[in-house]
Nucleic acid binder design. Structure first.
Lengths: 210, 210
DNA sequence: GCGCTAGGTTATCGGCGTTCACTCAGCCGA
DNA sequence: TCGGCTGAGTGAACGCCGATAACCTAGCGC
């Protein structure tokens, strides 16, 4: 099963293995669909290296998985930014974000699970959650708050606290994705109609009353 | 570490062990806070029995954990029913359900995780989801649809599809609980204010416009 | 051409879920 | 009373896991 053994890296190129490990781990995670079904040994095997080598680049398995998902999280943030960028107005941009959010979660269910559905001990402070924060998660949330603030400024007539509104939006879309991902056997109505329902409840409520 | 060995059960009393296993597994799950941190060996040890004995009563670990959480799910359903019963009108009952939902999730985070946040393959059909369904999950969802239908009948002025509304409500509260449980290090505003925000967005929207 | 060190390997540990072969207590029919 | 059946549980082992400690070696700088 093990493919050809990977040739030893050149003197300064130790980090090449790190990148290959991240890549293999990401592929295996998506393929197996379960964090516990991906073992250090499998990853090492896929890269063509022995298991202890992994520990030269990551202190433990959790950190490795976390690193994989931090990468995906950055892509997630980019996807949402891109979706919002082409919207005609701030409230449409929020809708586009919601749609992109759900699409990402359903496209990468196992990465979504690690990012948003497994317990993380790491603490954050409000001041970290800015569009140029240190982690992809902080940036993504910072972008959301920014987008909500834009909508409020554009006349959205709801509680003008962008933080609270951001959390409510996040919770709604996360709840939807999380349930869809966890309970595939539930008799769900078509996903687009669910997304539309949440969008309407959460976002149309923000649109200025005419 | 192992306490006294459990005396062998009498002839017809094999099911006593089953109950003791369920009980010990539930306690350990709540205590360790992580499904993977509870092992068959630990459960067997807590009961005073050897690991293979577990397999006389449950085919595998997943089924055992599932059985534990099915019990908790039934308590969950009861808690929501009880909360709704003392509300003065159908919309207040929905609010009470939401508050009880969140309270249960935060009181039993690891059971909540297993019930609602790990992937389940079991399929259901719409017809199963009634207040007298076979599983606690089916009953709980049936009760929710019933409660929403009651609110609609009482004049709640939103989309009159109880199923879609039920899913949206479920997703909202689940999203909130799920994030609170998964990201304890996030700078959350006080939980009651979050609950209130979701309640207002989701349920006050249902109250008849005067 | 020699030594140092980055970049690995080999061997091993303790724990896991699970299975197989086995033992033993106690009730049942003769 | 007693032989045997069977329900209830044990002991030992398998193959996997994450992780660690000790060792090796290719190749660059001098």
């Amino acid at each position: 099963m093990s493919p050809a053994r990977r040739p030893r890296a050149r003197r300064g190129d130790g980090d090449l293995l790190r990148a290959e490990i991240l890549d293999a781990a990401g592929r295996l995670l998506a393929e197996k669909g379960d964090e516990n079904a991906v073992s250090i040994r499998m990853i090492a095997d896929a890269v063509g290296v022995t298991p202890p080598s992994i520990y030269l680049h990551f202190p433990d398995k959790d950190t490795l998985i976390e690193a994989v998902c931090e990468q995906r999280f950055a892509e997630f943030d980019e996807a949402l930014e891109k979706a919002a960028a082409s919207a005609p107005d701030p409230i449409a941009a929020l809708r586009a974000r919601g749609e992109a959010y759900v699409a990402f979660g359903l496209d990468h269910p196992e990465h979504y699970r690690v990012i948003f559905m497994t317990r993380h001990e790491r603490t954050m402070e409000l001041g970290d959650l800015t569009p140029d924060g240190a982690t992809a998660g902080a940036r993504a949330f910072g972008h959301l708050v920014e987008a909500v603030a834009g909508a409020v400024e554009a006349g959205a007539s709801v509680t003008p606290d962008p933080l609270a509104t951001s959390i409510a939006l996040w919770a709604s879309f996360h709840g939807l994705v999380s349930l869809l991902v966890s309970e595939p056997g539930f008799p769900w109505p078509p996903v687009p109609s669910l997304v539309e329902a949440v969008l309407n409840l959460q976002i149309e409520g923000l649109r200025p009353r005419t």
